[in-house]
Amino acid sequence: MPGGRRPLVGVLALQGAFAAHQRALESCAADTRQVRLPDDLDGLDGLVMPGGESTTMSRLLTTSGLFEPIGERIEDGLAVFGTCAGMILLARDVLDGRPDQRSFAAIDIAVRRNGYGRQIDSFEADIDVPGTDREAGIGTVPFHAVFIRAPKVESVGPSVTVLAEHDGVPVLARSGRMFVASFHPELTPDHRLHSLFLQEV
């Protein structure tokens, strides 16, 4: 962050695990703001789209008037981190979504909602995050990832870099200043991925 100012990161707070993201970001020396209306977007250095129910968020993005202004800011290059439902909101293609479900089509991936199954199939697992050693200090320690009714990445376009996989399926990816994860880094005390995101903010 130029000038040493703490970055101000918005957390989409329409529904879902936004408070857990705020705690993670604040422990990485960022300031946070809950985003529920268009005015809340003013002056943000980055935006996190949390986990939750993507169909609920899609509907509330429309009723709150947030969909277009967020879309514009993403096009202008705002740094964005989407986890689980947030990844669905950012994906180019959403499979098994509702017909009226909207996404920003901002990252060239196709994801299947609930692609890993129902809650009884939700799981936690260690994942390697190779290739980010230097930039994020991720090192060789695996990242413990919690998957909750997670979306499954089914295809990835050429503009997207896959940062981690589980059982051969991409679970963490980036494209420019945009990061997406199918799991929940906000639910574990390890905040290396939030730090990685904040380097782009």
């Binding site: 695990a17 986990g51 939750g52 939700s122 697992a125 260690d126 909750i148 009714r149 589980h166 059982d167």
Partner: peptide, 22 residues
Amino acid sequence: SVESTRATGTYPVKRGLAEMLK
């Protein structure tokens, strides 16, 4: 990739869904 580990029904996984419904 780390050796495929997978644990279902753990406390963080169960509590995690409650977190998502907030």
